[in-house]
């Protein structure tokens, strides 16, 4: 008994050390800076500066609007994709290829993929050229430097996470449950909404949390695709740390982003739990 306990302790120790050194310590440094001023005196002024200013609220709104819409679109596209991969594809090798195609982009850097979208979404890019050739638009659409452009980039980058989590949930469903539902006279649609969909809800929730957290904290994609014309919180944080060197105000912005993100995730899981009752 003691032996196994010490084994567990030893196994837990390394991850714990890693977590402390690379997550807790930096987070503490940032949080400490956010509650002090340049002389090290404790203050709430950095937070007052953010929360008592409508400009910051508009940046917070933009950030979370992008995060929520990205999450919804990812689920809307990701669910059918996952369904196709798990339920429709019959050949194992084809399914394997699809999964590889899905996760392959994750092996390249975010920066490279965002630069790729800059080329595609540009004035003379593939998207605008196709639209114009098809006669759908006369002049190039403004996609770069708008929230739409950022949204396209974020959805592209984050989609694999939802497909994988939902696909996993779908694959685990016991087919006999759906067969029972059909035997008892439920239509395929009713079986889906009353049996299959609720059983995949944990997968949807897991995917949604991953996508939402990554979308609201994304820096590279918004920075490149916004062309500096749309501001999200992560961009403000970067500015303060990289060029203004105000770690107090920058730290407060980072903590604000963290708290808002956790609050939204908490509220949504509470709502879904109440809804499930």
């Amino acid at each position: 008994m003691i032996n196994s306990r010490s084994t567990v302790a030893a196994l837990v120790f390394l991850p714990l050390l890693f977590f402390t050194a690379f997550f807790l310590v930096p987070l503490t440094v940032v949080a400490t800076a956010s509650f002090t001023n340049g002389d090290g005196v404790p203050t709430l002024a950095n937070y007052a500066r953010i929360l008592l200013d409508t400009y910051h609220w508009s940046v917070i709104a933009t950030t979370f609007r992008l995060g929520i819409v990205t999450t919804l679109i990812c689920i809307l596209i990701g669910y059918p994709l996952a369904w196709y991969l798990v339920r429709i594809v019959k050949f194992r090798s084809w399914r394997r290829l699809c999964v590889i195609l899905l996760i392959l982009p994750l092996f390249t850097s975010n920066i490279v993929r965002s630069f790729g979208w800059m080329v595609l979404l540009g004035r003379n890019g593939l998207v605008n050229e196709t639209l114009q050739m098809a006669g759908l638009t006369e002049r190039p659409l403004r996609l770069l430097g708008t929230e739409t452009g950022i949204l396209i980039g974020l959805v592209y980058i984050l989609l694999p996470f939802v497909v994988l989590t939902i696909g996993n949930a779908l694959a685990k469903i016991d087919h006999s449950l759906e067969q029972a539902s059909a035997d008892l006279g439920a239509s395929p649609a009713a079986t889906f909404w009353r049996v299959t969909f609720p059983l995949t809800a944990p997968g949807i929730a897991a995917g949604a949390i991953i996508v939402f957290a990554l979308a609201v904290s994304a820096y590279v994609t918004p920075a490149l695709l916004s062309g500096g014309r749309v501001t999200v919180l992560a961009v403000l944080v970067f500015q303060q740390y990289s060029s203004v060197f105000d770690f107090h105000y920058g730290g407060a912005l980072a903590v604000t982003l963290l708290v808002f993100t956790m609050a939204i995730i908490g509220i949504s899981s509470l709502v879904s739990r109440l809804g499930a009752r």
Partner: peptide
């Protein structure tokens, strides 16, 4: 302006 560049690499691109 179409782009306010953060890095000179983004401008070159």
């Amino acid at each position: 302006a179409a782009l306010y560049f953060d890095s000179s690499g983004a401008a070159s691109n």
